[in-house]
């Protein structure tokens, strides 16, 4: 009976095993970047959608099954996935994606993080010791990360090393052109005073030279309260705020309320690829993001 069961399991499992590269991307932006580099040479599974807050994900059965088969894990890092990634690493018994292995790729390791807390205390909210993990909102980061990811792909899949290198050059060329275009377009945005829902846009603010007046969350990760919103309203008036920004997965109630009170324009921005119907890949996502801002 036991033998038959094992045989059966071996049979069904062998039919699903594929020899090629299996990439597990924690967030859509890394899935999209991987797609630019690997083309059809790998299977890419994207663990979260743009509609999900990547901080609030459970290590669901489907994620365990997919992480079990991955040879390359591409995540943000900087504690963004702290609530679920450790379980995937512990439970799946997959050697190639463990921290010590080449299959563990954290994008935040390759860029300079901002908003590092000078003190670590939960009374400040759910702060990240490593700094602000929402690195995808500065498009310049993708050049560095793409370079690092290419090197990693070449180690994991040396057969296609030349291909990855070519793809990376193509991407860099395309991306540099796009950056020039976006920066030209966004010139007028410089110095614009904005209010954001969460600290998700720190890198975009730095890139475009915007000015963050306040956040709708009273503490990082805590939903807006009426008391805090009253303060924000005051600040918005004092500082002559010009724009209210929230991400597509965030509740728009607080933003709407403030917009109504202050007559300031509020806009929803796609936090990643798939955040809006227009944001289908990396380039179209930033196109849409800037369109909405302008």
């Amino acid at each position: 009976m036991m033998k038959q069961l094992i045989l059966f399991l071996a049979l069904i499992s062998s039919s699903f095993v594929k020899a090629e590269l299996n990439i597990f991307a924690c967030e859509p932006e890394w899935g999209a970047l991987a797609k630019e580099l690997v083309g059809e040479k790998a299977d890419i599974y994207i663990a979260t959608t743009a509609q999900q807050d990547p901080h609030h994900i459970e290590a669901r059965p489907s994620l365990l099954a997919k992480a079990r088969q991955a040879n390359l894990l591409i995540c943000t890092g900087a504690e963004l996935e702290i609530g679920w990634l450790p379980i995937l690493l512990q439970k799946t018994g997959n050697k190639s994606i463990q921290k010590s292995e080449q299959g563990y790729f954290m994008a935040a390791d390759f860029v300079e993080l901002i908003d590092k807390p000078t003190k670590l205390d939960r009374s400040e909210g759910d702060v990240h010791a490593a700094g602000n993990p929402h690195i995808q909102t500065d498009p310049r980061h993708f050049l560095q990360i793409s370079q690092a990811l290419t090197q990693r792909l070449q180690i994991i899949d040396p057969q296609n090393a030349d291909f990855y290198s070519q793809q990376n050059q193509l991407f860099a060329k395309k991306w540099n052109l796009a950056l020039q275009r976006w920066e030209e377009l966004a010139k007028n945005l410089k110095g614009k005073r904005i209010i954001t829902h969460h600290k998700s846009w720190g890198y975009l603010i730095r890139w475009l030279g915007l000015e963050e007046v306040a956040t709708l969350e009273p503490k990082v990760g805590l939903p807006p309260t009426s008391g805090h919103l009253a303060n924000v309203l005051e600040k918005a008036k004092q500082n002559n705020a010009q724009l209210i920004v929230y991400s597509n997965y965030e509740d728009s109630k607080a933003a709407n309320w403030l917009a109504e009170k202050t007559q300031i324009k509020q806009i929803m921005l796609p936090i990643t690829v798939g955040g809006t119907p227009q944001a289908v890949d990396l380039e179209s996502w930033f196109n849409d993001l800037l369109n909405r801002l302008l």
Binding site: F16, P61, L64, A65, K91, G93
Partner: peptide
Amino acid sequence: LSWIAPTPFYLNI
């Protein structure tokens, strides 16, 4: 001892 099968869905015995 725990084993997760290499199946597209989650199977753990």
